[in-house]
């Protein structure tokens, strides 16, 4: 198979609070014969908060990030749901509003860049499903995860708003009944757990402003997975991961019940199934112990 090449927008979290996500992305890419060209010039996407303060600045900065992917002539791959939403939303708005695009490009011209709209933007989860295929991934599995009940946690910003999200990958995802992550679990040989909270919000974006709300949502998500006999959870989003992995104490307090499950990044789950060296998957960085490896 020909080597796949993508421009990788790591986002900030993978380089700071979820180093295991960056590590496992690289390990899995190597197994899958993917070359990731890291966009080291990229800035923070604003994480859906900068636009609350200054929408135009948020557009300019995200357009600059995309412009670097365009310079490489590559599809931009994200590994964070919120980076995906902010970047794809910027592309959608600029591609559908010539005046806005011109205003943004006027600014980018000051630093010798231009947003053209030539690069696709997709999350790593959908990139591998579209470009490699679940059947092919299943064939590459060397350690099937057959003894595990795995609860998928999709994360809002990969599935909503569906009209935008479904522009970024081939097979339409139903936000009320998403299947991509379930399909990946099955391809890895695991048993996917169905539960009501799999497509719900983890509360991350209100953690500082509305800590009680955020903690209840986190608690409900973990409790839903536990009540359906999940051995562990898996997510494509490092922000959901932070919430589900590091905030179990607050979550338990908020819902009046002890909740905790190991939570893996989708890259870590895939890495286990593909036989990556476990030291490269960074499980030691988790707060909720990954005790089954």
């Amino acid at each position: 198979m020909e080597k796949l090449r993508y421009a990788l927008f790591t986002g900030c979290t993978a380089k700071q609070s979820t180093p295991e996500q960056y590590m496992s992305t690289m390990a899995v890419a190597e197994k899958l014969n993917i070359e990731l060209v890291e966009l080291t010039e990229a800035s923070c996407c604003g994480a859906s908060h900068l636009q609350d303060y200054d929408d135009f600045l948020s557009l300019v900065l995200n357009a600059r990030n995309i412009a670097y992917a365009e310079k490489h002539g590559l599809t931009m791959v994200t590994i964070c749901n919120t980076c995906q939403l902010n970047t794809a939303m910027t592309k959608h708005r600029l591609d559908n509003d010539a005046d806005l695009k011109a205003r943004v490009n006027e600014k980018l011209a000051e630093v010798g860049l231009e947003y053209k709209g030539t690069s696709l933007i997709t999350h790593f989860l959908y990139a591998i499903i579209d470009d490699i295929g679940l059947d092919k991934i299943a064939e590459m599995v060397v350690t099937p995860l057959s003894q595990f009940n795995i609860a998928p946690f999709y994360g809002c910003h990969n599935i909503r708003p569906s009209e935008l999200q479904n522009e970024t990958h081939n097979k339409a995802e139903n936000p009320y009944n998403p299947t991509s992550l379930d399909d990946l679990i099955i391809a890895c040989g695991g048993k996917n757990v169905d539960y009501d909270e799999k497509n719900k919000c983890c509360g991350f974006h209100a953690e500082l402003q509305a800590p009680k709300t955020a903690a209840i949502l986190t608690g409900n998500a973990i409790a839903g997975a536990m009540d359906n006999n999940a051995d562990w959870m898996v997510t494509p989003c490092p922000l959901c991961h932070l919430k589900l992995d590091t905030q179990t104490h607050h979550a338990s307090e908020a819902i009046g019940r002890d909740v905790a499950l190991p939570v893996l990044h989708m890259q870590q789950m895939l890495g286990l199934a593909l036989g990556c060296d476990q030291n490269l998957l960074g499980m030691k960085h988790h707060l909720t112990k990954v005790d089954f490896v």
Binding site: K200, C201, H205, T213
Partner: peptide, 9 residues
Amino acid sequence: VWDCVKCFE
């Protein structure tokens, strides 16, 4: 508005 969790539901 500050308590919105940005879930897009």
